[in-house]
Simulated assay, not measured.
Amino acid sequence: MSVRAKKHLGQHFLKDENIAKKIGDTLTERGYKNVLEIGPGMGVLTKYLLEKSYTTHVIEIDTESVEYLKAHYLNLADRIISKDFLKINLKDYFSDEQLAITGNFPYNISTQIVFKALENKEQIPEFTGMFQKEVAQRICEKPGTKAYGILSVLTQAFYHAEYLFTVPPSVFNPPPKVDSGVLRLIRKEDFSLPVDEKMFYRVVKTAFQQRRKTLRNSLKTFNLSDSLREDSIFAQRPEQLSVQEFISLTSKIEKDVV
């Protein structure tokens, strides 16, 4: 018995044992006792996670995959969550316990998985896994490039991001049309922002929505005072600003808007 990859779920099953083991080894095992694998499919990565000292849980929306896992991984059966990760409340399953997230993520929802993890950052000290290469690079990108954007700034405000290695299409069934990339996010020791988080998100998203414009033009909707708009930071474009500078910008806007 094997599971058929379903296009509508964005499934590309990893078939290379060495890559699976490498992804399993990306978790540092520090600061948590539980790991949640998203989209385990037929368990090629799962088997390596089960060898580790932490407790492995999996979440899988595909009922065919769930049946396969129950049949082949008997010791995992009561830790299979047959739900959509994007729709669950983590606290319903893990209370307030710290847990790491990993997986070979479906390309079509991978950025949504990151945003969901950011919403639950108090509970997630570590996040590793495989994305479409350009998405993984975007998350880890530094300022000053075209790839640096909303995803880079919001993730790196709370996590240290590291691009680990590239994976070719040939190790999947069916093979995707692009390379994949594996990354690791480790939550910062102090991951609370000195500004209002909602305002920070709003500033970052608004700035990058018109990324070719200077901040003076892209942030017009904030109705800022003329004196603040003369600040030199507003002459820059969003990709030129570091995470710290975006925090500083948000602080200036908060004081101006009050």
Rank of each mutant, 00 (worst) to 15 (best):
L49I: 12
K52D: 08
L36R: 02
Y32K: 03
T46M: 06
G39F: 00
M42K: 00
N75R: 02
V66P: 10
I81W: 00
L76T: 05
M42Y: 14
L69K: 00
I38M: 01
S65I: 06
N89W: 09
V66Y: 02
M42V: 13
E37W: 00
T46A: 13
G43A: 09
H72A: 11
K52L: 12
P40C: 13
K87P: 11
H57M: 08
V66T: 05
I81T: 05
D78V: 08
A77R: 11
Y54E: 08
L74C: 10
Y54I: 12
I88L: 11
K52E: 13
T46V: 15
N34D: 12
A77I: 02
V35L: 02
N34H: 06
V58N: 03
T55R: 01
L69N: 08
G41C: 04
R79F: 04
T46E: 11
N75E: 14
E60I: 06
L36N: 01
V58R: 01
V44R: 03
G43C: 13
K70F: 09
D62L: 05
P40E: 12
G41Q: 02
Y68T: 06
I38W: 05
S53T: 14
T56H: 01
V44I: 11
L45V: 15
V58Y: 01
E64A: 14
V44G: 04
D78M: 05
A71M: 12
N75M: 13
L45I: 14
K52P: 11
L45F: 08
T55W: 00
L69P: 07
K87Y: 05
A71W: 01
I61N: 09
D78Q: 14
I88Y: 04
T56A: 08
G41R: 00
I59P: 06
L49K: 04
A77K: 15
I88P: 05
K33H: 13
I61G: 06
A77L: 02
V35Q: 02
H72G: 04
V66N: 10
N75A: 13
L50N: 03
T63L: 15
D78G: 13
T46P: 03
E37Y: 00
N89C: 05
L36F: 00
K33A: 12
K47Q: 09
V58I: 12
Y73P: 07
I38T: 14
I59R: 01
L36I: 07
K47N: 05
D62K: 00
I61H: 02
L86F: 01
L69E: 10
G31E: 12
G41M: 03
S65L: 10
L50D: 11
L49N: 02
N34Q: 08
R79K: 15
D92F: 07
Y54G: 05
Y54T: 13
F85C: 08
K83W: 01
L90T: 01
S82H: 15
E67C: 07
A77M: 06
L86S: 09
T63N: 12
E67T: 10
S53Y: 04
D62M: 03
G41H: 03
L76F: 03
L36C: 09
A77N: 13
K83Y: 02
H72P: 04
E51A: 15
K52H: 06
Y68R: 00
L45C: 08
K33T: 15
N89M: 08
G41F: 03
V66I: 04
L49T: 09
N75K: 07
L69T: 01
D92A: 01
G43E: 10
K87D: 14
